[in-house]
């Protein structure tokens, strides 16, 4: 489906487009184009552009996502999987350095619009891996970016 075709699915009942599950990062150029087309189509009516992501995209693409969400009233739900880089590599195969850089970038934008919140952090509590110490370090990092940033703790289920 092309970006134009996806944007054409937006009708008068559509109030939000949320890109999530799996991560939208591999398709971001497509999603960004579709979002822009959809916003052009809806004009001044509310159409929020939202994302759920692991935050591993390049900074240039992140800026485009952030601009879309900020202007449309949407949010970015940002998955901080682990604080430990070693643990992140063990669980995902990649470093989390860019994730933290990207989160900090979004955090400094958040006061441009506080309601509804622009940035939300989340962590999946994987038994045996993401323990209290991991959450403590993640929470301290989030708090260093802003103590008012919403933080969601998610239950893990082995079949989901």
């Amino acid at each position: 489906m092309s970006a134009d075709e996806l944007a054409d699915w937006v009708d008068e009942r559509t109030a939000c487009i949320c890109y999530f599950g799996g991560d939208p990062t591999p398709q971001l150029p497509h999603a960004i184009r579709a979002s822009r087309l959809a916003l052009e189509k809806t004009g001044n009516r509310i159409l929020r552009i939202c994302w759920e992501t692991n935050g591993s995209m390049s900074s240039g693409v992140l800026r485009q996502m952030a601009e879309l969400s900020m202007k449309s009233g949407g949010c970015i739900k940002f998955d901080l999987k682990t604080y430990s880089e070693e643990l992140n590599i063990a669980l995902t195969g990649v470093t989390n350095k860019r994730t933290f850089e990207n989160f900090a970038y979004l955090a400094q934008m958040r006061n441009e619009r506080t309601d509804p919140p622009f940035l939300i952090a989340s962590t999946l509590l994987v038994p045996g891996y993401v323990d209290v110490e991991e959450v403590r370090n993640l929470a301290r990092f989030i708090a260093s970016c802003g103590t008012d940033i919403p933080y969601v703790l998610l239950a893990f289920h082995p079949s989901r």
Partner: peptide
């Protein structure tokens, strides 16, 4: 999750929630 919730609050965050409670 309760231990993590308390830890997140103790670390200075003021807006912490639990989702998927049914799991």
């Amino acid at each position: 999750v309760q231990d993590c919730l308390k830890t997140a609050h103790d670390s200075g965050l003021t807006n912490v929630h639990i989702e998927n409670k049914h799991l």
